[in-house]
Amino acid sequence: MKKRLLIILVFVLAWAGTASLAQDDVFRVAALMPSAINDLAFSQSMYDGLTAVQNELGAEAFQFDVQDSTYIVDDAAVALRDWAASGDYQLVIAHGSQYGPIVEELASEFTDVSFAWGTRQDTFGMDNVYSYAAASDEGGYFNGVLAAHLTESRVIGLVGPIEVGDGKLYADGFANGVASVDPDIDVNIVFIGSFSDVPLATEAAETHIANGADILTGTAQMVVGPIAAAKENDVLWFGSDSSQDELSGDIGVAFQIYKWDVLLLDMIRKIGEGDLGGEYYVLTLENEGLVMEFDQDFEISDELMAVAEETIAGIVSGEIVPIPAMDDDMAEESEEEDDGEDSED
């Protein structure tokens, strides 16, 4: 055991010697993403965040490299290791919760490179790992409240990828948001079992509409299909992760946008001060890492605007808790209750 540690130490020292050569005043970040940087969803949110940081700090002070579409989990290990070992980057970002175990391993080997990964609140107890998450239940709740006010058919459809992570968090928050306005409104939830199957996601949206939904929402990169279906059928759309304004045309209502630049700037400052990690960040409405944006084409009434502002204020102040008692199994139970109501109809 000690021998292995020693080897790592020697290696790290030897490597640190060469690494310092590459560094100048530029802060360099490398980021790995599971889908395309322009997917209008999760990966794009990080790319936009990095771009925003660069605009803020200037290209002479901040540069970043990305590898996108790395959905093969093991490929991530190759890229992340290559970046960490190159010594060219002060911060290596693994943007996807599936990359966590890889970060855990690399961080113990490359102790003077700072790593960041998400979305998860877990730094593995290491001093050179930041982790980040988004309270996507907050935006989900907000969207749910608005959707509940806008629905006339009293049926709302949600298309999600697989029933885990951010997608599930958003779905639970959304359902609770709707229920807070009127528990009798149906929220039909379909997880299609894939992040990328656009045809199936499209047909899931059509099925929602056929079952009376006049509002749709959803997460992950395959929602471009449901957005198109919503457009075709003139049904309203609520989105998450990135702005889908460009695609949604006049059926978009509101988008929950992840502003990763908020936490990236803070991370960069800390790394500059020598703090390589050990903390986790959560984007919330309160710290303005989550921003609710209305679609440009959506004409919002004063009444609804008041509801929107009230909801955000409530979530920020802690008066509204999007998913009560997240720590235990309550969230799951409440979901089961929802299911029960649906099948009674």
Binding site: N188, I189, A204, N211
Partner: peptide
């Protein structure tokens, strides 16, 4: 199409 419909109307089978 059927499996989508079953999920939409909320029948409790694993997706």
């Amino acid at each position: 199409a059927l499996q989508l419909q079953i999920k939409v109307i909320g029948l409790d089978i694993p997706s």
